[in-house]
C-alpha cells in the first residue's frame, strides 16, 4: 500500500534522508528502527508531507498515487493517520474535543468518538480533562485515538513508547495488536528492538538516512542488529 523509494530529504543543507526505502502492506505492522538521528522521524514527516524536511528526490506512493505533491491534510484524508513524536496534543482542547474537532459526534460509521472511548476506557473517564492534565500513558492513548478519527488504513506512529512506563508500553503493544487485528496497517518508529519485535511483522533499519536492513520479524537473530542499534 505504502511505498517509499530511494527518498532524499533535507533540513536546509543537511541531507537527512539519503535513499531511504520501505514498504508497508495492508494490515501489516512494520517497525522502523535505528539509533537517534538516523532519519526515522524525518522519514515519517516526509511521508506525511510536512514542510520540513524538504523532499528533493525519490518517491512516496500510496495505493499507486504519489503523495509528494500533496498537502498534509490531503494525505491525512487519503486515510493515513499520524501519531507525532512527543504526542503533540492540543493544550487548549479537552480529551473529547481532541476527537470531536476532527469528527462530528453525530457520525455513526467508521471510528466514532464512542468507539475510540471503548478502545481506551481510561480516556472516557477523563473526557473533560485537558491534554496537559493526563498522564504520559493517557496522552499517548489520546494521540492514537485522535489518529483514528480520520478512519485510517495506515497509521504512522512516531516513537509512541517514548517515555512510557514498561506496563504502559505493554498496553500500547496490545493496542497495536488490536488495531492490526481490525485491519489497520501500522508503520511504527521504535528505538527498542525487543518492543518492536513484540508487535511487528517486518523490521526496517535506517542508518544515516539509508535503509540498511530489512527482514521479516523472526527470520533473524536479534543480536545481528546490535551493530546498527547499539546495545539494548
Amino acid at each position: 500500500m505504502l511505498e517509499v523509494k530511494d527518498l532524499h530529504s533535507y533540513y536546509g543543507q543537511a541531507h537527512v534522508l539519503q535513499g531511504a526505502s520501505l514498504t508497508v502492506g495492508a494490515s501489516e505492522v512494520v517497525a522502523l528502527l535505528g539509533r537517534n538521528g538516523m532519519g526515522k522521524t524525518s522519514l515519517i514527516r516526509s511521508v506525511m508531507g510536512l514542510s520540513s524536511p524538504q523532499v528533493r528526490g525519490g518517491a512516496v506512493t500510496w495505493k499507486e498515487r504519489s503523495l509528494l505533491a500533496m498537502k498534509p491534510h490531503q494525505i491525512a484524508r487519503a486515510r493515513i493517520g499520524y501519531v507525532p513524536q512527543g504526542r503533540r496534543l492540543f493544550p487548549s482542547l479537552t480529551v473529547t474535543e481532541h476527537l470531536t474537532v476532527l469528527k462530528s459526534p453525530d457520525v455513526t460509521h467508521g471510528w466514532t468518538v464512542e468507539r475510540a472511548f471503548e478502545l481506551f476506557p481510561r480516556l472516557a473517564e477523563r473526557r473533560q480533562h485537558r491534554g496537559s492534565q493526563l498522564s504520559g500513558g493517557e496522552r499517548q492513548m489520546l494521540a492514537v485515538a485522535r489518529a483514528l478519527m480520520i478512519d485510517p488504513e495506515l497509521i504512522l506512529m512516531d516513537e509512541p513508547s517514548e517515555g512510557l512506563a514498561p506496563v504502559m508500553v505493554q498496553h500500547l503493544e496490545s493496542i497495536i495488536a488490536e488495531l492490526k487485528a481490525q485491519g489497520l496497517a501500522i508503520l511504527l518508529v521504535e528505538q527498542n528492538l525487543y518492543s518492536a519485535l513484540a508487535v511487528a511483522d517486518r523490521v526496517v533499519v535506517l542508518e544515516s538516512g539509508k535503509t540498511v536492513f530489512e527482514a521479516k520479524a523472526g527470520s533473524f537473530a536479534p543480536d545481528t542488529l546490535t551493530h546498527y542499534l547499539g546495545v539494548h
Binding site: 506525511m48 510536512l50 514542510s51 498537502k71 498534509p72 491534510h73 494525505i75 491525512a76 484524508r77 499520524y82 507525532p84 503533540r88 492540543f90 493544550p91 487548549s92 482542547l93 474535543e97 470531536t100 474537532v101 476532527l102 462530528s104 485522535r146 489518529a147 478519527m149 480520520i150
Partner: peptide, 23 residues
C-alpha cells in the same frame, strides 16, 4: 467545533493539518 478547530490551530497548526484539517 469551529472554535475547537481555531483553538487547536492556535496551539499547533502543523499537527492539526496533519490530522486532515485544511487549516
Amino acid at each position: 467545533r469551529l472554535g475547537a478547530l481555531i483553538r487547536a490551530g492556535v496551539d499547533d497548526p502543523e499537527t492539526i493539518e496533519a490530522m486532515g484539517v485544511d487549516i
